[in-house]
Simulated scan of single mutants.
Amino acid sequence: MEEKDELLKIFSMKLRMTLGNMRINFDDLQEIRLRINCPLIINYKNKEYFVSEDGSLVTDPLKGVLVSKNEIKETMEYISNYSLYAFEEEIRQGFITISGGHRIGIAGKTIIQGNHIKGMKYISFINIRLAHQVKGCADKVMPYLIDEKNRSIYHTLIISPPKCGKTTLLRDIIRQVSDGGPNFQGMNVGVVDERSEIGACYMGVPQNELGIRTDVLDCCPKAKGMMMLIRSMSPQVIAVDEIGSKEDLEAINHVINCGCKLIATVHGSSLEDVKSKPVLGELMQNKIFERYIILNNIKSIGNIEKICDAAGNKIWG
């Protein structure tokens, strides 16, 4: 209840009352979307609903409470504690992370200076993605990721369609690798959290538990961050979310050549789907990854479909 109350404080008074009247389990609430002159929308248990003024979840957009320009303005004032200037750097990147690890995506008119985004004004669209840490969700996969012979872990790629729990699974793998367990020693983990979703840092402090041996580069481009961590923090493992660019490939090769293990995620529906992507196809052809974890949401969000070895042979599922 305390976490719910803290979350509701960022909304305008009208929206605060509407959302507070929802008779739902807030642990299953994934997104809240505000758009000027459009109905209030939430994503709950992986389904989209409109929210009526009394807090009821409805499927008819005409019954959803309309979000006004004033609601957006008032909400942004609460989010920024009446000082958008203090969040200038975050706004430039399109999102703000608040206490609790919740990520506020924003859109509006961008201010361009040269080839760079200087800032944003006339913010008209807000997407609140709620942070949900599921400790223990990696218990099932951990035995297949531990290389007992070399007292290390395997290079691992998590493959998942959007909104199927890949970041949640990655987060718990990081925590368990960092803390260690009965059958393996904890390792130094470096996390490049480009979009502030893994650790959800607020004022430099991760709001999610990432383990006692974990260092985080927050809001840092993946390729540059991997190189920085190798030089500065001597990680044994590097973890990144959503790889796929040519720059990522170069950095990954450097990480591996330095003897560091890699845990990464990518959007995809299957091994074959990922193999068809230029950069990732090259990594898979060279058998860089020793373990593949494929997720879906058939039974529930984060459902583990199967685990495969470097050759793509199923070893679980």
Score class of each variant (00 low, 15 high):
residue 305 E to Q: 14
residue 296 N to F: 01
residue 283 L to P: 02
residue 255 V to F: 10
residue 288 I to W: 00
residue 231 R to I: 13
residue 213 R to G: 05
residue 288 I to R: 09
residue 202 Y to T: 10
residue 260 C to S: 09
residue 248 D to Y: 02
residue 257 N to M: 12
residue 274 V to Q: 01
residue 251 A to T: 06
residue 257 N to Q: 15
residue 262 L to P: 02
residue 214 T to C: 14
residue 286 N to A: 15
residue 246 K to R: 15
residue 296 N to R: 04
residue 238 I to E: 02
residue 229 L to Y: 01
residue 258 C to K: 13
residue 261 K to D: 08
residue 260 C to G: 11
residue 280 L to D: 01
residue 271 L to P: 03
residue 236 Q to Y: 10
residue 276 S to D: 08
residue 302 G to C: 09
residue 275 K to V: 05
residue 300 S to N: 04
residue 251 A to D: 00
residue 282 E to Y: 10
residue 234 S to D: 13
residue 257 N to S: 12
residue 298 I to L: 09
residue 239 A to C: 14
residue 240 V to A: 08
residue 267 H to C: 13
residue 273 D to E: 14
residue 297 N to T: 03
residue 223 A to T: 05
residue 291 R to K: 12
residue 203 M to V: 09
residue 224 K to M: 13
residue 223 A to Y: 06
residue 235 P to A: 13
residue 268 G to N: 02
residue 204 G to H: 05
residue 280 L to W: 00
residue 213 R to Q: 09
residue 228 M to N: 11
residue 299 K to F: 02
residue 253 N to K: 15
residue 289 F to A: 12
residue 244 G to N: 12
residue 260 C to V: 15
residue 244 G to D: 03
residue 294 I to G: 00
residue 274 V to D: 00
residue 273 D to G: 05
residue 282 E to C: 08
residue 246 K to P: 02
residue 279 V to N: 05
residue 290 E to S: 12
residue 293 I to Q: 02
residue 276 S to P: 00
residue 240 V to F: 15
residue 262 L to S: 04
residue 211 G to I: 06
residue 246 K to H: 06
residue 219 C to T: 07
residue 284 M to L: 14
residue 282 E to A: 09
residue 215 D to P: 05
residue 210 L to Y: 01
residue 254 H to I: 13
residue 241 D to T: 14
residue 253 N to S: 07
residue 302 G to I: 02
residue 266 V to I: 14
residue 280 L to G: 03
residue 202 Y to N: 08
residue 280 L to C: 07
